[in-house]
Simulated assay, not measured.
Amino acid sequence: MSALSVEGLTAGYGDVTVLTDVSFSVEAPGITAVIGSNGAGKTTLLRALSGLIRPTAGGIALAGQNLSGLAPDGFVTAGIAHVPEGRRLFAGMTVEDNLMMGAFSRRVPAAELKRDLDAVYAIFPRLGERRRQDAVSMSGGEQQMCAIGRGLMAKPKVMLIDELSLGLAPVAVDVLVAALKKVADDGLGLLVVEQDVAVAFELASAVVVLDRGRVTRTGPSAAIAADPAVRAAYLGEA
């Protein structure tokens, strides 16, 4: 089922257009990866899809609800969680406090929040072990777990993750890939920007190729991975 639909999206900063006529969809459950070279517009795309910048044309719909014109908190309330590049955890706050910040807009009983917190700890046991530790004192992989867990605490329909593996050790990436596959299997839709194309193909069931602000290919990851032009551009194959 298509959870997030993007149609003819054009966006940028001031007079500078970064994205032009971008269209694709994200299925839920499922994982869609966005790949592209530096400067292709990947981060701008996620910023537009979470309401941080306002498109100049096109539409964004989540589960049939038109999100055009909403403020960023409206995107969160509708069901989009954004895990930004660099993780952006709150220094001086514990892991658990950082996780609970993801639920700041939810008006539900404390017992429900506790169940959701325990579910995050079940996905990432390391966070449970470090729940009282200052979040920014953890390793990069553990901080990424915390940032993703914070997003999960918002109970989103679709989660956006910018640069999942950037700067992380391979063993940490393996843990994150396994965890994201599990939460997708449980019903979540994920849109993941990933600079390591091999990781993107391993993680995702569908891939969007972004080049200079335009979508040049979309489709099942196996088909995109087998495309000779994609392999030459992103895997260095002749």
Rank of each mutant, 00 (worst) to 15 (best):
A57Y: 04
A57H: 07
G58W: 09
G58Y: 09
G58C: 12
G58M: 10
G59A: 14
G59Q: 10
G59M: 07
A61N: 10
A61F: 08
A61K: 13
A61R: 14
L62W: 01
A63K: 02
G64E: 00
Q65V: 15
Q65T: 15
N66V: 15
N66E: 12
N66Y: 01
L67G: 06
L67Y: 09
S68H: 10
G69D: 13
L70I: 03
A71D: 13
P72T: 03
P72N: 04
P72C: 02
D73Y: 13
D73Q: 10
G74V: 00
G74F: 03
G74P: 01
F75P: 00
F75E: 11
F75W: 10
V76E: 15
V76Q: 15
V76H: 15
T77Q: 15
T77D: 13
T77E: 15
G79D: 05
G79F: 01
A81V: 08
H82V: 01
H82M: 03
V83K: 08
V83R: 08
P84T: 07
E85I: 04
E85H: 02
G86A: 12
G86M: 10
R87T: 04
R87A: 08
R87P: 02
R88T: 01
L89M: 03
L89I: 00
F90D: 02
F90T: 03
A91N: 08
A91D: 10
G92Y: 11
G92D: 09
T94P: 00
V95F: 14
V95W: 14
